[in-house]
């Protein structure tokens, strides 16, 4: 039991940073929370709602995302899109990710 718990914890930690990168990479176009969740899920990255929605707000507070309310199909939706700061940060994050992957590939080979 303890083993599967610590496995879960490690996996959670591993995913946490990746999700930020995934979110920033997918927000070149406007998405609302639920549509982003599905967009990520369609590409194979399952993210919990309880993780994604607060994360979007946090990234907005940090200035990496911008958001705007739009009325659509009689329902208001909050659309998020990457900000100028976010656009500056993204290539750096991508490079970090590529470095990590190449190092870990060698290490785990």
């Amino acid at each position: 039991m303890a083993n599967s718990e610590s496995l879960d914890n490690v996996v959670l930690e591993l995913r946490r940073g990746v999700i930020v990168l995934a979110v920033l990479s997918q927000l070149n176009g406007e998405q609302y929370g639920y549509s982003l969740l599905k967009l990520l899920s369609d590409q194979g990255l399952e993210v919990d709602q309880g993780t994604l929605y607060p994360l979007l707000r946090r990234l907005e507070t940090q200035g990496l995302l911008e958001s705007v309310w739009k009325l659509e199909e009689a329902r208001p939706r909050r659309y998020y899109v990457i900000s100028t700061d976010g656009k500056k940060l993204l290539p750096k994050l991508k490079k970090e990710w590529a470095d990590i992957v190449s190092v870990m590939k060698k290490m785990l080979a």
Binding site: Y32, Y34, Y53, W69, R77
Partner: peptide, 17 residues
């Protein structure tokens, strides 16, 4: 701050789902 905003967003998400 942002309580109403969170509520509004949550409602629209749940309705979508």
């Amino acid at each position: 701050q942002g309580r109403e905003d969170i509520e509004k967003e949550l409602r629209s998400t749940l309705e979508d789902m």
